[in-house]
Simulated assay, not measured.
Amino acid sequence: MKFSLKRTIFMQELQTVQRAISSKTTIPILTGVKILVTEEGLTLTGSNADISIETFLSVQDENSLLQIEETGKIVLQARFFSEIIRRLPEEEVSIEMLENNQVAITSGKAHFTINGLDADNYPHLPVIETENQMKLPVHVLNKLIAETGFAVSQHESRPILTGVHFILSDQKLLAVATDSHRLSQRVIPIEQAVENFDIVIPGKSLIELSRSLTDEEELVEISIMENQVLFKTETMYFYSRLLEGKYPDTNRLIPSSFNTEIDFYVPTLLAAIERASLLSHEGRNNIVRLTLDADSVVLSGNSPEVGKVEESLSYEKVTGEPLELSFNPDYMKAALRAFGDMSVTVKFISAVRPFTLEPTESSVEFIQLITPVRTN
């Protein structure tokens, strides 16, 4: 194996596959990055128990200045190898395989020789069937992840809730996540009929996927098989395990009738909650209180250790019965950030029942639900 290429391009590829490499694995070879050189180009692979990432750099890619003299494959210790590449003095780097799985790295006057492992011992990635496939624009997938991924559970006590549930039916793709205190559900129209598309993908996998997808890529192809899903772009294969078990029926959690409704402009409400949470974070109880009637809407926070805050909120309109309730400001901030620059309608039943947030513009199918905090 012998090849040379532009160091900065190589570094980008290494950083992408390193997202899948853990230093805390029980399988030593998985702390390494697999390098495969063929006449077509350079393939890098990184993997752990949950995700695997494979990137491909073609010899046709003029930016990379990739030149292949000999084909071959090797596994190199990922963290150590990428640190060497990062600190090399020149823009061009050449890599050559020596005897006994050793590899020579040369750039300018710097010359390293490092030990590798036999690539034949590296686990094989699953073969994905091509029947169950769906295509999505990359920016749509990234938006879906941003709008739901934050609401997954961080506790392993109910593993199924640590993932986002995706269902495709009637030409609509539904993505929903809940940690049992809050819920975020987004529905987008999609012109594809894929059968049995009902999967739960770990939230951590989706965050790494979102970080790995670049703006240059337009479409991502999604394929599923028994316990794996593959996200495929022109230059990357991203595999994730699927969570096993039945996801709870979240539709029954979403109320259909309400007693109080109020419309807010998201950035204005978000800024007010950020101010109120300055004090709530300092105290023992991380809660803020919302008091609303026909004439006013007031946000307040009281932290005996620090002080208190009160602010009259700007709102667009309010209807229904007066209400007073408390909620976790962090849940509310995460929900509002997912909506972005728009107006939302917040709908309440009572001080102890979950309330919902939906875009005031009814063409967007996006609903979030937050459970209030009971206070004496």
Rank of each mutant, 00 (worst) to 15 (best):
V127R: 13
V103H: 09
P159M: 03
H124V: 03
R86T: 14
Q185N: 03
G163D: 08
I190K: 12
V164W: 05
P137S: 01
P159N: 03
E129I: 04
Q185L: 11
A193F: 12
I160C: 08
L98I: 10
A177D: 02
F80T: 09
H124Q: 08
G72W: 07
A151D: 00
I160S: 06
Q77D: 10
E96P: 05
L141F: 09
K143D: 14
I167Y: 07
L98Y: 08
R182K: 13
L136G: 13
N115L: 05
L183Y: 00
D118Q: 12
T71P: 12
V138N: 03
S169Y: 02
F81T: 09
P159K: 01
F112L: 08
T162S: 15
S94M: 11
L183G: 03
E96S: 10
Q154K: 14
H165C: 04
T71Q: 14
I84C: 03
F81Q: 05
R186H: 08
P89N: 02
N142V: 04
S94V: 06
V187Q: 12
E90L: 03
I84L: 09
N132S: 12
I74E: 08
K73F: 03
G108K: 11
S169M: 09
F80D: 03
R79F: 06
T162R: 09
A151R: 00
F80W: 07
P159W: 01
L174D: 03
N132T: 11
V103I: 14
D198H: 13
E70H: 11
I114M: 01
Q133L: 07
Y122E: 00
E91V: 08
Q133D: 08
D179G: 00
K73I: 00
H181N: 08
G72D: 01
V140T: 14
V75Q: 04
N142M: 06
L136H: 07
G108A: 08
V75W: 06
E195S: 15
L141G: 05
R158K: 15
Q154G: 12
G116S: 05
A78E: 01
Q185Y: 01
D198M: 04
F80N: 06
L168W: 09
D179N: 10
L88D: 07
R87D: 15
Q171G: 10
S107W: 14
Q185G: 05
N132C: 05
E83D: 14
R79G: 11
H111N: 13
Q77Y: 09
H139L: 13
S107K: 11
L173S: 04
H181F: 09
A104Y: 04
Q133T: 13
T71G: 11
V93I: 11
F112N: 07
Q77H: 10
T162F: 02
A146K: 15
L144N: 11
H124N: 13
L76D: 03
V103T: 15
I188P: 06
V200R: 00
I128T: 15
L136T: 06
